[in-house]
Design a protein around this nucleic acid. Structure first.
Length: 587
RNA sequence: GCGCUCGUAGCUCAAUGGAUAGAGUAUCGGCCUCCGAAGCCGAGGGUUGUGGGUUCGAUCCCCGCCGAGCGCACCA
């Protein structure tokens, strides 16, 4: 067993103590029930300290097959367990659990392991799998709002988590720079610009209302004077005689393209650049970084959209009806078939999205993860269907839905309409609550849970925000280390046997849990689990720190406790940095 | 109407099919001549929406019902 092959004693066992115990159980199993020798052996960490460090439900799982009382099976398994220098006690409890209690040395050795690995403690072995996480991908038609903020915090933390767990991760933002929405933003800006020259055209209710549109119009005026001015009458003359607001808006876009000619492209690209630059800066300040910004328009420019549709056509998944081309997504479980090319010849957003996802797959990712707003859930069957129809493995696409954020101010739900420009931006939220609190707060609920965000509460009670609780633990450790003023590097080699209190064992157990927590949270795409873990870790630390003094006179005791504090700080740092939350030395 | 995501303490939220369902907050009671009280210790607070099923065991898996949010475009 590991014990005999580890001459340095038990220093190396902490990371695979689970494996070690599994080996013991496997040996006992082979003796008790040879026919079940390959049954899965599960070891979990009991929630209650009195249940030991690890528990196995093996006996209960075998009960049915062996037609025997679980507790009897457990007794026999326990009797056949090989002895181990790491196991202090084995007990049968409850319905038939086998509970293992480790020796003191086995429980505290994690401290040395943490200090030896440092920032790498908890990092998974390289898996060799390439993942892509695409998130935010908001239309660059206005400032990011608090809903985007949740997607940004979730996606960024998820990507960091997956990378730390051992995967090769690429973070991507899909820029919708080719659609009608961008045209609407361009024409909105142009109309505001015309107003500045006293050529007022009634501003459409379904155009972008936000103040940033007026600001962009002002910028254009400053930079180019009256170059883009046309008489209001000329614009109005293009309007159709209809009450249909969408038709009127489309007519305005056409009027802009006709009257401005080549200059339309300038307005269009100017507003795009303005919004994209702002979005990028906003996210950077939020600690959210991307490896790639993928342009939707590039899919058209390179002919990939046309090729994707043509391929589907060739494989017989497209039919023509009412002048439009339809993808037969019902053949893949969708509710209805979907248009990929309109009767006017223009491709739909769906068409470019097919091309985009095929492109992702062509880039060789083993797994493509899309983080979408929950309102896009109906979109999943058609995208997966299109991938399947194109001969791709739709199972390589995982879509994670992030539920809505409802904002409350003064007890009232804040209406959130991008079009009306009436919403709280991510930037405003960050300024009110702070980046750290924002990032952590977003992570305190799993993504498929709707979030009620009370602005007043978040603001007035920011001191009660859990992020401070975790950061405070970090600052306290920094403080005590500073007062000790010794060589921290030497703490990695100290004798840990003075650590004997239950609170010290509990803290050690929490530290030892970190690597498997990382793996589990990465597997489940659940960065919130890390936030909850850090809260628990900080709690275990505060509880211990309040009960036991670190800087005691006894040299051996002092060093052992300093080592435990330093190891705790290391794991706090590793975890907080994955969530994009700072680790202040003092607060 | 159909589909997706949900329903857990007064409130905000956790819980790889496991043991007495946990934290925070709020309420109540304790702890600073002592390394940071943004902290700690303790108390009360629950028919996990509801009715069935699966099994040694269900908050978790399956079905019905009730309720909430979202979606059901030749918009993105």
């Amino acid at each position: 067993m590991a014990a005999s092959s580890a001459p340095t004693g038990i220093a190396g066992i902490s990371l695979d103590v689970r494996q070690h115990l599994t080996g013991l159980l496997r040996a006992a199993l082979a003796s008790v029930a040879p026919g079940q020798a390959y049954a899965e052996i599960i070891l979990e960490r009991p929630k209650q300290a009195s249940h030991g460090d690890f528990a196995s439900n093996l006996a209960m799982q075998l009960a049915r097959e062996l037609k025997t009382n679980p507790r009897q099976i457990a007794e026999r398994l326990m009797h056949e367990l090989p002895s181990s220098p790491f196991v202090a006690k084995v007990e049968i409890a409850g319905a038939g659990f086998i509970n293992f209690t480790l020796t003191a040395a086995a429980r505290t050795t994690v401290v040395a392991a943490v200090l030896a690995a440092g920032p790498g403690f908890g990092r998974g072995a390289a898996s060799g799998t390439r993942l892509q996480v695409e998130f935010v991908s908001a239309n660059p038609t206005g400032p990011l709002h608090v809903g985007h903020g949740r997607g940004a915090a979730y996606g960024a933390s998820l990507a960091s988590l997956l990378a730390f767990a051992g995967h090769d991760v690429s973070r991507e933002y899909y820029v919708n720079d080719a659609g009608r929405q961008m045209d609407i933003l361009a024409v909105s800006t142009w109309l505001r610009y015309l107003e500045l020259f006293d050529e007022p055209v009634p501003f459409p209710p379904n155009a972008y209302q936000g103040g940033y549109v007026r600001e962009m119009a002002e910028q254009v005026k400053q930079a180019h004077g009256d170059r883009y001015v046309h008489p209001a009458e000329a614009v109005l003359a293009c309007l159709p005689d209809t009450e249909d607001v969408d038709a009127r808006l489309d007519a305005l876009i056409l009027a802009g393209k006709d009257l401005l000619g080549e200059d339309w492209a300038y307005i269009h690209s100017h507003v795009l650049n303005e919004q994209l630059t702002d979005c990028r800066a906003d996210l950077e300040e939020f600690g959210v970084h991307f490896d790639a910004w993928f342009s939707e328009r590039s899919l058209y420019d390179t002919g990939m959209v046309a090729r994707a549709v043509a391929a589907l056509e060739k494989s017989g998944h497209i039919y023509v009806q009412d002048g439009a081309k339809w993808f037969q997504s019902t053949a893949f479980g969708d509710e209805k078939d979907r248009v990929v090319q309109r009767d006017n010849g223009l491709y739909t957003y769906f068409a470019s999205d097919i091309a985009y996802h095929l492109n992702k797959f062509e880039r060789g990712f083993d797994k493509v993860i899309d983080v979408w707003g929950a309102d896009h859930h109906g979109y999943i069957p058609r995208v997966k269907g299109a991938l399947s129809a194109s001969g791709a493995d739709a199972g390589r696409l995982d879509v994670t839905l992030v539920q809505f954020v409802s904002l409350f101010r003064d007890g009232n739900k804040v209406s959130m309409s991008t079009r009306s420009g009436d919403y709280v931006t991510l930037r405003q939220l960050r300024e009110e609550v702070g980046n750290d609190a924002c990032r952590f707060f977003y992570m305190l609920r799993k993504c498929d849970q709707a979030l009620d965000f009370d602005l007043d509460l978040a603001k007035s009670q920011s001191n009660d925000n859990p992020v401070y609780y975790v950061q405070y633990a970090h600052a306290r450790i920094c403080s005590v280390l500073a007062q000790w003023d010794g060589d921290q590097a030497s703490l990695g080699r100290v004798d840990l046997t003075p650590l004997l209190h239950e609170r010290e064992f509990a803290l050690c157990a929490r530290l030892a849990e970190f690597p498997e927590l990382i793996q589990g949270a990465a597997r489940d795409y659940a960065p919130h689990a890390l936030a909850f873990y850090l809260k628990d870790l900080a709690g275990d630390f505060h509880s211990w720190y309040n009960a036991e003094r670190v800087l005691v006179d006894d040299q051996a005791m002092r060093l052992a406790r300093l080592a435990l504090a330093l190891a705790t700080r290391q794991v706090l740092q590793n975890g907080l940095s994955l969530l994009g939350v700072s680790q202040p030395v003092s607060m």
